[in-house]
């Protein structure tokens, strides 16, 4: 059982979360862990361990497909609302929790329209506000200087790394409380990856980040807390330094030293 550190502010808490796509096999098996405010939490583990599935529970992405039952809770602080509850509209959840995907997925629109998409969807009309937010988000994503002269050209013209930072800017423009990153650098070259990692460290001042990554070095570099998952179970959760230097569980140790996974 994971102890919650009382000295830190909670942003979300996963409580006994189980989830399955089909009836037989459980993909998540009673996972419990805290997500601390303005910290980076990394989810690591071998392929098929359920880390992406867990991440996609946070913004109810599973609701888009033939709905499966969520069992357990994800409590969002400060108001302590269970975002998995049937009474909660997934759209409201997604308005507060942003997500960046593995593959950069800019919309076939201009750079500007990509960044302000969330605002348009929310019905924001005020042009000055929209422009202000666009600039701020692009600056936060470290992309402003590269694209400020061509905001009206197509987002497809950007390189892969720029597209991914554009997707981060798009998620940031609506000032989400939690930002979910699903292997955000797996499709990028090393330089773009370094860019995005610097960005994550910069961003955690303002926003809580949950990142799924296959790259253990990345988890060690950017995260404050790490959760190691294996076959749907949360094996170990703790401060990143502890997980990487002094893991309590044998399986965690084997995984981070590269003996399997």
């Amino acid at each position: 059982m994971v102890e919650v550190n009382p000295n830190l502010q909670l942003r979300a808490e996963v409580k006994n979360l189980s989830f399955s796509y089909s009836t037989e096999k459980k993909v998540l098996n009673s996972v419990s862990m805290p997500i601390y405010d303005t910290k980076v939490t990394a989810l690591i583990g071998p392929s098929g361990c359920g880390k992406t599935t867990l991440l996609r529970c946070f913004n109810r992405m599973h609701d888009l497909y033939k709905v499966k039952e969520y069992q357990g809770e994800i409590t969002l602080y400060p108001e302590q609302m269970n975002i998995l509850s049937k009474d909660i509209d997934p759209i409201e959840v997604r308005m507060r929790i942003g997500m960046v995907f593995q593959k950069p997925n800019p919309f076939p629109k201009t750079i500007f329209e990509n960044v302000v998409y969330g605002l348009r969807v929310r019905g924001v009309k005020k042009t000055s506000f929209i422009q202000e937010r666009c600039e701020k988000a692009l600056q936060q994503a470290g992309l402003w200087d590269e694209v400020k002269d061509r905001l009206n050209s197509s987002a497809q013209m950007l390189s892969g790394g720029q597209q991914q930072r554009l997707c981060i800017a798009r998620a940031l423009a609506t000032e989400p409380e939690v930002l979910l990153l699903d292997e955000p650098t797996s499709a990028l070259d090393p330089i773009s990856t370094a860019h995005v990692e610097e960005l994550i460290i910069e961003l955690k001042k303002d926003v809580t980040i949950v990142i799924v990554t296959h790259n253990l070095h990345q988890a060690a570099r950017v995260s404050d807390y790490t959760a190691f998952m294996y076959l749907g179970d949360l094996i170990e959760y703790g401060p990143t330094t502890k997980i990487f230097t002094n893991p309590a569980d044998k399986r965690t140790e084997s995984y981070i030293t590269g003996r399997f996974g």
Binding site: L64, I91, R94, G98, M99, F107, Y117, V121
Partner: peptide
């Protein structure tokens, strides 16, 4: 993934 990107931004099915 384009649809998912849109839904993740809080868009409705119609949007």
């Amino acid at each position: 993934y384009l649809r998912e990107g849109s839904f993740a931004m809080g868009a409705s099915r119609f949007q």
